Simulated scan of single mutants.
Amino acid sequence: MFQQLFGAAVPAALRGPMLVDDVGLPRFWTAVWSVMSAAQLAYSTHTKKLRYLEDLYQHADNLRGPNALDNALTELDDGVLAQILESWFVSI
C-alpha cells in the first residue's frame, strides 16, 4: 500500500512516499531502492514509480502469498521471479 511519511519522528532522509505491506511494514526492496536511488528523482517521478511497483507487489501477493516479491528477490529465486513477472506482464 502506498503511504506518505512526513511525521516529525521520521528522519528527514526517510520522509516521503513509500510502500508498506498489509501489516504496515515497509516493502523491503522498495525501501532500499528509495533510500539509495530516489534522491535524484523528482517527487512526482518517485511517486509514479512506487505506484507501478505497488501494482507489481499486489500482483505477486495475490499470486504467491504475502511478501512473495520481496522473498523471491531476497532469495534470488529466478523461477518465482519469472512466474511473477510473466503473469504480471500478461495481466497489464
Rank of each mutant, 00 (worst) to 15 (best):
M1N: 03
F2R: 10
F2W: 05
Q3R: 14
Q4T: 04
G7I: 07
G7S: 15
A8F: 12
A8E: 15
A9D: 14
V10W: 11
V10K: 13
V10T: 14
P11K: 14
P11G: 12
A13L: 14
L14Y: 11
L14I: 09
R15L: 10
R15P: 01
G16Q: 03
G16A: 02
P17W: 11
L19M: 07
D21H: 06
D21E: 04
V23Q: 06
G24R: 04
G24E: 07
L25V: 04
L25T: 07
P26K: 03
R27D: 03
R27C: 10
F28Y: 11
W29I: 03
W29V: 02
W29T: 08
T30F: 01
T30H: 03
A31W: 06
A31H: 04
V32E: 08
V32C: 05
W33R: 14
W33T: 10
W33K: 13
V35T: 10
M36G: 12
S37K: 13
S37M: 15
S37L: 13
S37W: 07
A38P: 01
A38W: 00
A38Y: 01
A39C: 10
Q40H: 13
A42P: 03
A42D: 09
A42W: 00
Y43N: 08
S44D: 15
S44V: 15
S44G: 14
S44M: 14
T45E: 04
H46T: 06
H46D: 09
T47P: 00
K48L: 01
K49H: 06
K49T: 09
R51N: 12
Y52A: 06
Y52I: 04
L53Y: 02
L53H: 05
E54M: 05
D55L: 00
D55R: 05
L56I: 14
Q58S: 15
Q58E: 15
Q58A: 15
H59Q: 02
N62G: 13
N62F: 08
L63A: 11
L63D: 10
R64P: 00
R64Y: 10
P66V: 11
P66L: 11
P66G: 10
N67T: 07
N67C: 13
A68S: 14
A68C: 08
L69P: 05
D70P: 00
N71W: 02
N71S: 09
N71K: 13
N71C: 07
A72H: 09
A72I: 12
L73F: 02
L73P: 07
E75Y: 00
D77E: 09
D78F: 09
D78E: 14
G79S: 12
V80Y: 00
L81Y: 03
L81D: 06
L81W: 08
L81T: 07
Q83P: 04
Q83E: 15
I84T: 05
L85H: 04
L85T: 05
E86D: 10
S87M: 05
F89T: 12
F89D: 08
V90F: 11
S91A: 15
S91P: 06
S91G: 11
S91K: 15
S91W: 06
I92H: 03
I92V: 09
I92T: 02
I92N: 01
